[in-house]
């Protein structure tokens, strides 16, 4: 299956090694425009490595990644973000001592005026940009949880995990990326919280017109509910793809997960 016009992100024989360990081995994977793609597989199958290679945290040892019409293989993390890819982290990497608003604004970096002169001397214009950004951030947070939107200037470290996950997703979405990479958003949350967060994600999808999501998840209920398609990895290779029902019925997948001989 080769890349077509409707593919937003495509990886071609992507390879990543850590010393002798092959984390990704000739991986072919595409995400179609506006779909929610589930990325599943046992621990250590290369899912997070794939995110890290795409977002420029690790350099690939082979293969290429295209995003829209551009090749983004081995671009820096900065350049990948500017191209329109934003992500969350498995161990939520929020800045705990900063406020909710500050954390979201970290994600808004490319849309804020970063000139030193603007920031220091043009306080009137700065105030305008600040107020506009605040309104946008508040609107976005409201989609997730209206009460949170009234606590924008409290340190995020004082909030429970589900709120941190919500804010992390807001941080990734505030700059209107075309592609959102969610790395196990349910980690560290209860079953009810996970359900709530998935509702939020589905709702967010409806408010964004052009948004493709790739989600890494272990909770199969989540995958079943929110993905259009799934790709299953094992030992850095794609072993199966299709709808959730298709992959769940696949004997290879069952073997990878349950270890049936």
């Amino acid at each position: 299956m080769s890349g077509t016009a409707q593919d937003l992100l495509a990886a071609r024989s992507l390879t990543k090694r850590f010393g002798g360990l092959v984390a990704l081995e000739g991986l072919d994977l595409e995400a179609r425009r506006n779909e929610v793609l589930g990325l599943i597989g046992p621990n250590g199958s290369g899912k997070t490595t794939f995110f890290n290679v795409v977002t420029g945290i690790y350099a690939a040892d082979g293969g290429e990644v295209t995003f829209g019409r551009d090749t983004i293989t081995n671009l820096s993390a900065q350049a990948v973000y500017h191209a329109g890819i934003a992500r969350t982290f498995q161990r939520s990497r929020l800045m705990l001592e900063l406020s909710i608003f500050d954390n979201i604004m970290v994600g808004n970096h490319r849309r804020l005026n970063q000139g030193l002169w603007f920031n220091l001397a043009r306080r009137g214009a700065f105030r305008q940009e600040f107020e506009d950004s605040f309104e946008q951030a508040r609107k976005l947070v409201k989609v997730f949880d209206p009460p949170l939107a009234d606590r924008m200037f409290e340190p995020i470290g004082g909030f429970p995990m589900i709120d941190r996950r919500r804010i992390e997703i807001c941080r990734a979405l505030i700059s209107h990326p075309q592609l959102l990479l969610l790395d196990e958003p349910s980690a560290g949350m209860t079953h009810e919280e996970t359900t709530q967060l998935m509702d939020d994600i589905l709702e967010v999808r409806n408010t964004f017109e052009d948004l493709t999501i790739i989600i890494i998840e272990h909770e199969m209920g989540v995958i079943e509910r929110i993905t259009n398609r799934c790709v299953v990895l094992n030992f850095g290779r794609k072993i199966c793809e299709g709808t959730y029902q298709e992959v769940a019925a696949d004997p290879l997948v069952q073997e990878a997960y349950l270890g049936i001989e």
Binding site: A77, L94, V106, G107
Partner: peptide
């Protein structure tokens, strides 16, 4: 804010274009 972000988490900051 940028200076704080760079202090608190360089990797996350880099992923947001810093």
């Amino acid at each position: 804010l940028n200076l704080d972000a760079v202090r608190l988490d360089e990797t996350a900051a880099a992923c947001f274009g810093y």
